[in-house]
Nucleic acid binder design. Structure first.
Lengths: 221, 221
DNA sequence: TGCGTAATGTACGAACTGGTTCGTTAGTCA
DNA sequence: TGACTAACGAACCAGTTCGTACATTACGCA
């Protein structure tokens, strides 16, 4: 989330559509993530911006479209990260582990994004459905996983006939839950899943889990 | 969720505190799960009840306490289910698989509960913290897992030195994600994780994953 | 049977909230 | 340089929303 922060020429208003839009999106991302879609206040977003509520409606049309724009930008950040995945030079086991760790790191680094996704699910993904952009572009990570899995099966390392999307779901589950349900889990089990000193532990646990699943001896089943 | 449904004596109002309270909780559960905490409308809950908004404030004090009461009852349902866990007569591998499948089934059967938990996490578990009841009582499932893990390690079947709470988190992750993120995942990857004809597939996948993790050959690490 | 209290219903209000109306200003291009 | 338009601000409005004041009724018990 590129936080816009500029010297702000002190005398009166400056005209910069791009900056104003970006600033609104920054603040809106925080506010929606903080309070949920219905809990977020358009006035509050405006107040924390160097512009006014009028501009939100001028640029985005309304609360609904603003949230959609927030989601679009948030998703574009992961896609960017996924695009930079470069793990296919590794052997399949190392490649999958690396991919899992990158997913893990990305979730940890973007808790606001996780919250937005939770919120969007409460609303049954209606904003994603309404978005021109989001519906189409699928994740590059899936293709990467598909290729690694193929290589792993070809070399005999991977015993399981797993689908790439399913494996992605498995990896995401763990990463997502850890961040999204941090609070209830902590309150009920007295354990902070996102505690700094447990980070490596859970990161390894995820890798071990995925590799164990892919390389398990299926002859006993 | 025991839906209260009674013949409803046709002539005028009936006095039944327990029934009125239970009916409010039923409707409130639906409404909060549907729209989130901030999105839920007290008037709407009252309208869908055979009583009035006045009664909500009379019995629960306010929206906040009503939501807490909804959470308390929702969590008590899982605890009930967990209390009935009876898997320790099985060998450790079968016992863990059975436990994972029960968790899987419970999540699938209670989507409203999943939504409430997501919502409560958006609000950083503040209602759980405010609850007299919820903070203390921890899950019986943890003790069951602890015992199975011990037996598994003792018999040499389980290679991993896993903590019971961590394993619970692992199992819950997959089950929770599948239900909670159904909508965004479906919209983005074109796959319905809760499709009826894929149920067995994902149920097996979870079991395979957990067993593979617990019985993996760790000598290579 | 009458009385006290728990339970219930109605109507209302103050504060809030998304969205709009109307008017203003800065930049730019002919 | 002047006019045109994109960018912007202040005030306002209509509909909601949580919560309450006040009146009322059913039920248990003396």
């Amino acid at each position: 989330m590129t936080t816009v922060e500029e010297p702000a020429r002190p005398g009166g208003r400056i005209r910069d559509a791009a900056r104003t839009k970006a600033e609104i999106l920054d603040v809106a991302t925080q506010e929606f993530a903080r309070a949920g879609y219905m809990g977020a206040r358009v006035d509050e977003i405006a107040a924390r911006t160097r512009t006014t509520k009028r501009m939100i409606y001028y640029y985005f049309g309304g609360k609904e479209q603003l949230f959609t724009a927030v989601l679009e930008r948030a998703y574009s950040v992961i896609r960017q990260a996924e695009q930079e995945l470069d793990v296919e030079h590794l052997d399949p086991v190392a490649a999958i582990r690396r991919l899992a760790e990158l997913t893990f790191d990305h979730h940890e680094a973007h808790p606001d994004f996780i919250r937005l996704v939770s919120i969007e699910n409460i609303h049954e993904a209606e904003h994603i459905a309404a978005s021109e952009v989001l519906g189409k572009l699928s994740s590059p990570a899936i293709e990467v996983i598909r290729r690694i899995l193929e290589a792993g099966r070809a070399s005999g390392l991977f015993t399981a006939d797993v689908d790439a999307v399913d494996l992605h779901a498995m990896i995401s589950s763990f990463c997502f839950f850890r961040v999204a349900n941090r609070h209830t889990f902590g309150a009920l089990f007295g354990r902070d899943l996102v505690a700094a000193d447990q980070r490596e532990h859970y990161r390894n646990m995820l890798g071990d889990m995925v590799i164990a699943y892919l390389t398990a001896d299926r002859s006993a089943d």
